[in-house]
């Protein structure tokens, strides 16, 4: 198995920073919405802010690092192994021959750090390989296309 492994783990080092920025943007949006909704009531407003900020820091300093540590994408010649999760860590193997087509998407924050998300579309389900470097996404796409040509 080790012989046909191409890359050990292709998760980008920017994984954490990208997800932290996205979470912060969501937080800003939530603060604005809560301020608009509970402008007249001080106590519920403060309580909601306390909960929100607590959740935000728990997300930034605990949830996201654990997710990052659990997230591994092992690239092989004919398949990819995707390992991710928080409480329950799931490991799935996707054969390139079973992938019907792939979609590479890049959000605004992802574009700034040169990372992207690859959706591997299969019959009945899809697997997301998120926050990997663009060159690794191209390599993954190349391997997938090559398996189709061989198949």
């Amino acid at each position: 198995m080790k012989k046909d492994r191409i890359k050990k783990n292709i998760v980008s080092p920017y994984y954490l920073i990208v997800r932290r920025i996205v979470l912060s943007l969501i937080m800003v949006g939530a603060i604005v919405i809560v301020a608009m909704m509970l402008a007249d009531t001080i106590v519920p407003l403060i309580l909601t802010y306390v909960v929100l900020i607590g959740a935000y820091f728990a997300g930034i300093f605990y949830y996201l690092p654990v997710c990052y540590n659990n997230c591994k994408y092992y690239l092989f010649e004919d398949h990819i192994v995707i390992r991710k999760g928080f409480f329950i860590v799931k490991e799935s193997r996707v054969d390139y021959s079973k992938v019907h087509y792939s979609v590479i998407s890049q959000g605004i924050v992802q574009r700034r750090f040169g990372v992207c998300t690859v959706a591997l579309m299969m019959a009945g389900s899809k697997q997301m390989v998120s926050n990997i470097a663009v060159k690794d996404a191209r390599l993954l796409k190349h391997l997938e296309e090559r398996s189709k040509k061989d198949g």
Binding site: S102, V103, S105, K148
Partner: peptide, 22 residues
């Protein structure tokens, strides 16, 4: 020759490659 290639998306850019064989 082998696939349909599509770029789309305003904020989130998407790149589809759909092989004719599929």
């Amino acid at each position: 020759n082998r696939a349909i290639h599509i770029h789309s998306g305003i904020f989130r850019k998407k790149d589809y490659v759909i092989p004719y064989s599929r």
